[in-house]
């Protein structure tokens, strides 16, 4: 049974068509990557999936329920999104920032319980920031801040993870190991992960399905094996892409 389904979804931003009548089904435990050129609307699509933008037409069905018809609270319990960039107005501690993920699970006047704090600490361990929980967010490096934001998302415990450029600012080790662990974790919980990435090889390493956006509303979706070819990826980026095969698998690079 599909966990997340798009039905005839049409999304637009500033009169640019991101996708037109797009339909697809995502099963529990699947990891999808959205690939496309700059400005093709990948982040817009992700925000629409998160219920933060109203689509022009069509529906997003999560567990047999229309996402836009869910209450804000239950939507936030099911869908979590990592934004491309985050802002801070007043510096909060790393732990307090990670604890914001518990908001959808708490009643208005309820404070965070020991259990919530425990969850935040476990998430900080997952991103290797458990030693920095008392530091101010503004004192962290870009990569550390990215990891703290990921930890906040883990603490939110949504079934569907929407990650916009999660590897931004991360070094190779954290890209492969930390993101890898996070994604494997969601797979084993029968959740869904949707990634927007520019690093094709990292995207292919993690995902089993692809959604390709070609611009002007053209899109194609399917399993990685059928879509990850030189010809199709060259069309996605409007740039020649070449493939090499090594003992570790196949790799793409711009020609």
């Amino acid at each position: 049974m599909t966990l997340l389904a798009l039905e005839n979804l049409s999304v637009e931003i500033s009169n640019t068509c991101v996708c037109q009548d797009l339909s697809l089904g995502i099963n529990p435990g699947e990891v999808w990557s959205v690939l496309g050129r700059n400005g093709v609307g990948k982040s817009t699509l992700l925000k629409t999936l998160a219920g933060l933008r109203t689509p022009v037409s069509g529906q997003i069905i999560l567990n047999d329920q229309e996402v836009m018809s869910l209450s804000r609270r239950s939507r936030a319990q099911r869908l979590g999104i990592l934004f491309q960039e985050n802002e801070t107005l007043f510096p909060a501690s790393v732990l307090d920032t990670v604890l914001t993920g518990r908001h959808p699970w708490l009643n208005p006047l309820q404070g965070e319980s020991t259990e919530d704090i425990q969850k935040a600490r476990e998430a900080l361990e997952l991103v290797d920031l458990d030693q920095m929980s008392d530091r101010s967010m503004t004192s962290l490096s870009g990569g550390e801040r990215r990891r703290a934001d990921l930890a906040a998302l883990v603490t939110q415990e949504p079934l569907v993870l929407l990650l916009d450029e999660p590897s931004n600012h991360l070094d190779m080790h954290y890209q492969v190991v930390m993101l890898g662990n996070l994604i494997a974790d969601w797979r084993s919980r029968n959740g869904v992960v949707i990634l927007v990435m520019h690093d094709i090889n990292l995207a292919l390493r993690f995902s089993d399905h692809l959604l390709l956006l070609f611009g002007e509303g053209l899109a194609e979706s399917g399993p990685v094996e059928t879509l990850a070819t030189e010809a199709i990826l060259s069309r996605v980026y409007n740039h020649t892409m070449r493939m090499v095969s090594t003992a570790d698998g196949t790799w793409f690079y711009p020609g």
Binding site: A50, L52, R75, Q77, L79, N86, L89
Partner: peptide, 14 residues
Amino acid sequence: NLLSLGELRAESLG
């Protein structure tokens, strides 16, 4: 607290 992290982020947390 959430609003000070950004309007969209607050919205995404309900």
